[in-house]
Each structure stands twice: as structure tokens, then as C-alpha cells.
Design a protein around this nucleic acid. Structure first.
Length: 559
RNA sequence: UGGGCCGUCGCCAAGUGGUAAGGCACCAGGUUUUGAUCCUGGCAUUCGUUGGUUCGAAUCCAGCCGGCCCAGCCA
């Protein structure tokens, strides 16, 4: 099994090394993992890293992975988030073994707490939150024992039951582990295990008025489920001694092991739930699924594929090192996948009319265009052609530099799949703006090559004016202008004002289809596009998923 | 001397005592009816730093430097 990572082409990492060793030593026979989100927000690209890790490991080692909702804080959790999380995990292509709530274990957890009390390892503390904080000490000074620390087991049992039986108000008491108030690790200074909260829980309703905290719940939930490898992010490293303490002091069905890895940080983006929420509620984006958001639902709407996200996760690896991934890595993972699957079409986003004066007004014909230049299995479609066409405004320059391969007065270009045209005249309006172009075509060049074999360096895309379908096209760019908006004093300052540009006069080739399950298209020379949810046949809307690599833009920039 | 963790190319990342994989980015060529794709070549005498051990060190030891996390009745 240790070479299973090689079988899937995935790179190994230190966690897979640990699993290989556990399997080899016989410590573990079936690998069980879990992805444990709190249902208090939408999943984002950072979660995708964890999902691919946990579900990927379960898949590669023939084990299984649970989707567990860590719902121990009833104040923040909602059904909307539960639904979206399930949808996103499924969309990413993963199947969970079971999908429990941590709250399903509240009864067992309560019994475990009693077990701790009976051993004299947990006690009810009646100090206020402020007093508890004060007695906890600081990072550099030890804490001190509180006045309730040595209550008898009997009294603790009575009090804890009374807490459960709704005999106290919020905050009157908490249950604490009795560990060591002088510990250098603050998490071990008698951590709170249960608090009183008179709040209706999305799953357990009003059954409980006491709720366990993460540290008490997590390891026990893992143990109940038979999780062998509990993978979490680096900030929980300090919690591992507590995770172990709980499991070492209680008899559980299994003994999971926690291992930490570095969370994802991506340039030009935010993954803080609080800040993502601010973007939504303040209206800087249209919602959690705005195509500019790196939420799973935003990326789906933008046109990312599950495969491209998995590719990305494979590319960045798993380590304990704090790192920031460049956007280029995500872009490459996306382009690689889209390049192989996207069907090619022509569309003009910013149209400039071209009249081919030597092409008869009442004539039209059809050219054949391959749906994919490298993959003949994709077949071809017919592309209608007539006297008036649209080309991209960017593909014409009145005073063009020598390295500009496109159209300019007197120069000849190839219309993709069609023929050669030469620009004869520029038509301007009163304001001096270019209104249209008058060109001639070479009838000998039908299909895109001429018998004399002359070289035409430039090939541009086009759409027949009479056959074109009008559409709106959303051009998306990164949401922030700085590599680390999360570090800015105010991330609002870093918002990119041009992150969305609406082109409402785009012209599409008529063979472009709108379906319920939208197809990834490449609009040739422009990028990858996908039909938006709001698209209708009367008013097609396309989102630009990603541009093509553009070495001409690079040359221009460096000039 | 609070505790924990981390430092290998611009960004990621293999490497587990035998003489620095790979990807992204970048540069230079080639193919091309997408300035796309694809292909070829280039890109760390050196692994935060200083010492030590060793025939041999990114890997072992010690010191130093730098970065991140922890004082919720959040997760």
C-alpha cells in the first residue's frame, strides 16, 4: 500500500509517510480520516486543500473519510451552510462514508464528562469568565488555582447534573478539566470543557442548555468514529497535548492521532470567514458564489472544474511550512484542465465592424472549424460567413508597430478558418473614432491558405454580423490589487475596482449553446468562458473563467 | 531561557549521512490557421547562519539569526 501514492501520480508528503509507517507497523489496518467543518460559512479554496487531503488519502489507501459537522457552538451554525458544504464536497467529486454531526454525540460526550469528574479530573468552576481569565495567567506567567478547583467529586457530579438540568443561567458555571494551572502550554491550564448556553441548536433543538467545547469534543468524536488520522491545521499544534490528555484519560473505542499541516495561503485573496462575509454583506461582491470569490461555489460559477482544483492541490503539496502560493499556480492548474476539455468557438467581445467590399452582399457561405485543434474526437462545426463581420477592436491598429501581427491599413491577416483580408480603408465618425473598416478578401484563400503559399503571420477571430448572437460577457480579474490583502490594515483599500468588467455588446458564433449543465468553452484567442447561472437564450451571459496565456501582452508591457 | 512549530532557487516542493528530483514563474529556440497548446534547451558548487562530528553533512550535534502560532465560556 505504501506505493499507492505513486499509483495515482500524487506526490508523497509527510502525512502519507506517517500513514505508511502506521500501516507497516500494524498500528493501523484501515485508514480513516474526516473533514470536520463547522457549518458557519461557505467552503473556500483553503477547505479544498483539506478536503483533497482527507478524502484523497482515504481513497488512495482504500479507507474512508467522514464529513463531520463540528457543530458545538449553536450560536453560529445554520442549515444554509450545511447544505452548501454537502453540495461543495460532492461537486469536488468526493463521497463521504458517513455524514454525522458532532452534536449526534452529545449524550456520549456527557457521559465521558461524568467519567472525568468521577476520576477527579474535571470540576465545576463557578468563577466568572473574567475571573477565569485573570487566574489563567499570561503567556509568560503561570496561572493560579481558582477557589473551586478542589470541590469534591460528589459536589461536582451534582453541580454538573444541575447545569444539564437547566438550573443555572448562562455563565454561572463551567466544567473544566483539572490539569495544571502552571503549565507552560496555556491550553493545559484547566481548559473549559462545557459551558451553559440557552440557545436552540440546529440539530438538537432545546434538548441541551450545556454545550461541549471543541477541545473536548473533537478527539472524542474522532475516537467514536474510528478515525485513525485526524488531520488539522498548524494552529492546533498547541492543542495536541490536550487532545491526547482527553483520550488518555478516557476509555474510547479507538485511539486517533492528530497531525497538523500548514493551511493554504494564496496571493491576492482572502480566506478569513469574517472578511469573506464582509465582502458579501457590504455588497462588494454579489454573494458567496460571486465568480470572483475563491469560495467553492464562486469558483464553480466562475467555471473552475473539480479536476482543476484537485490539480492545484496536488501541485502545492502538504507540509508544515508557512507558505504563500502564487496565483500563477492556480491559473496554470485551471488552464491545463480547461485546455484539454474546452470546446473552441469564436466570439467577439468588443466588436469592430468590417465590410468586405468585394464579397457580394447577397452571398453567404459556411466554413468548417475544428472544435479542438489537438483532439479530432471533438469534431467540427460549421461557421457562417458573409459580407459584414465583426472583429475584435484590439485586433486593429491604425499605426501599428512592426511586431503587431494583426490588422492595420494595407496589411493582410487571416480570418480563422475562412480567408485572407486586407484593410483598405478606415471609416471614422465626426468625433474621429473608428467606426468600421473596409477590407477586401482574396477569393483564392478560402479555407485559410492560398495557392501561392504566401505567409500571413496573423490569424484573428471573427463573427459574421448577420449570424451573430448578442451576449453579455463578464470579464473577471483578481479581487485585490495587493498580494496579501489580509495583512492590510483595511482590506477595502486593496479592492480591485476593475475586478469585474461587463461587456454588454459581445457577439457570439451561433453554434454556442446554452445548457443547464454549462459546457466549458474556449473563445479562441480570448480565454475560457462558461455560461452564467443567470444566462437565458434571450440574453446569454458568459463569465470569463480565465484568460489564455498572452505573450503579446507581455511584449507590449515591456515596451 | 513562557510554550509549540518552521527555515532547500523569485513561489511551491522532493530529499531521512554518499555528493541538490519535480512543478510554477522566468529566459532562449522550434512547431503552429489561437502571439494558445505542444516540443527542446537554460535556470541552487549549494540547502537561514556559525561552529562541531565524519573519509563524506541539506541530512547528526551545539550556538546564533529570522518567521509563524497560543492568554475565547470560538473552531
Amino acid at each position: 500500500m505504501s506505493d499507492s501514492s505513486a499509483d495515482t501520480g500524487e506526490s508523497s508528503n509527510f502525512i502519507r509517510d506517517i500513514i505508511d509507517a502506521d500501516l507497516a507497523s500494524g498500528k493501523v489496518s484501515t485508514v480513516v480520516t474526516r473533514f470536520p467543518p463547522e457549518p458557519n460559512g461557505y467552503l473556500h479554496i483553503g477547505h479544498a486543500k483539506s478536503i483533497c487531503l482527507n478524502f484523497g488519502i482515504a481513497r488512495d489507501y482504500n479507507g474512508y473519510c467522514n464529513l463531520r459537522f463540528d457543530d458545538t457552538n449553536p450560536e453560529k451554525e445554520e442549515q444554509e451552510y450545511i447544505d452548501s458544504i454537502r453540495r461543495d464536497v460532492e461537486w469536488l467529486g468526493f463521497k463521504w462514508h458517513s455524514n454525522p454531526f458532532a452534536s449526534d454525540y452529545f449524550d456520549q460526550l456527557y457521559d465521558y464528562a461524568i467519567g472525568l469528574i468521577k476520576q477527579g479530573k474535571a470540576y465545576v468552576d463557578s468563577q466568572s469568565a473574567d475571573e477565569i481569565r485573570a487566574n489563567r495567567g499570561t503567556l509568560k506567567t503561570p496561572g493560579v488555582d481558582g477557589p473551586y478547583r478542589n470541590r469534591s467529586i460528589e459536589e461536582n457530579l451534582q453541580l454538573f447534573e444541575a447545569m444539564k438540568n437547566d438550573e443555572f443561567a448562562d455563565g454561572e458555571h463551567v466544567l473544566r478539566a483539572k490539569i495544571d494551572m502552571q503549565s507552560p502550554n496555556i491550553n493545559m491550564r484547566d481548559p473549559v470543557l462545557y459551558r451553559i448556553r440557552h440557545v436552540t441548536h440546529h440539530n438538537t433543538g432545546d434538548k441541551w442548555c450545556i454545550y461541549p467545547l471543541y477541545d473536548f469534543t473533537h478527539g472524542l468524536s474522532d475516537a467514536i468514529e474510528g478515525v485513525t488520522h485526524s488531520l488539522c491545521t498548524l494552529e492546533f499544534e498547541d492543542h495536541r497535548p490536550l487532545y491526547d490528555w482527553i483520550l488518555d484519560n478516557l476509555e474510547t473505542p479507538s485511539r486517533p492521532e492528530q497531525t497538523e499541516f500548514a493551511r493554504l495561503q494564496l496571493e491576492y485573496s482572502l480566506t478569513s470567514k469574517r472578511k469573506l462575509n464582509a465582502l458579501v454583506t457590504e455588497g462588494h461582491v454579489s454573494g458567496w458564489d460571486d465568480p470572483r470569490m475563491l469560495t467553492i461555489s464562486g469558483m464553480r460559477r466562475r467555471g473552475f472544474t473539480p479536476e482543476s482544483i484537485a490539480n492545484f492541490c496536488d501541485m502545492i503539496g502538504i507540509t508544515k511550512k508557512y507558505s504563500t502560493i502564487e496565483m500563477g499556480v492556480l491559473e496554470t492548474a485551471l488552464r491545463d484542465d480547461l485546455n484539454t476539455r474546452a470546446v473552441r468557438r469564436m466570439a467577439v467581445i468588443n466588436p469592430l465592424k468590417v465590410v468586405i467590399e468585394n464579397y457580394p452582399e447577397d452571398q453567404e457561405e459556411v466554413f468548417s472549424g475544428a472544435n479542438h485543434p489537438q483532439n479530432p474526437d471533438y469534431g467540427s462545426r460549421e461557421v457562417p460567413f458573409a459580407r459584414e463581420i465583426y472583429i475584435e477592436r484590439d485586433d486593429f491598429m491604425e499605426d501599428a508597430p512592426r511586431k503587431f501581427f494583426r490588422l492595420s491599413p494595407g496589411r493582410e491577416v487571416r480570418l480563422r478558418f475562412a480567408c485572407y483580408i486586407t484593410c483598405k480603408e478606415v471609416v471614422k465618425n465626426a468625433a474621429g473614432e473608428i467606426e468600421s473598416l473596409i477590407c477586401t478578401y482574396d477569393p483564392e484563400s478560402r479555407g485559410g491558405s492560398s495557392p501561392d503559399g504566401r505567409k500571413v503571420k496573423g490569424t484573428i477571430h471573427w463573427v459574421s454580423a448577420r449570424h451573430a448572437v448578442a451576449a453579455t460577457v463578464n470579464l473577471y480579474d483578481r479581487l485585490f490589487t495587493v498580494p496579501n490583502p489580509g495583512a492590510a490594515q483595511d482590506f477595502h483599500q486593496a479592492l480591485n475596482p476593475d475586478s469585474r468588467i461587463v461587456m454588454d455588446n459581445a457577439m457570439l458564433e451561433p453554434s454556442i449553446e446554452l445548457t443547464d449543465n454549462p459546457l466549458a468553452y474556449q473563445f479562441e484567442r480570448l480565454g475560457y468562458f462558461i455560461s452564467d447561472y443567470d444566462s437565458t437564450s434571450e440574453k446569454p451571459i458568459f463569465n470569463r473563467t480565465m484568460t489564455l496565456r498572452d505573450s503579446w501582452a507581455k511584449i507590449e508591457q515591456s515596451r
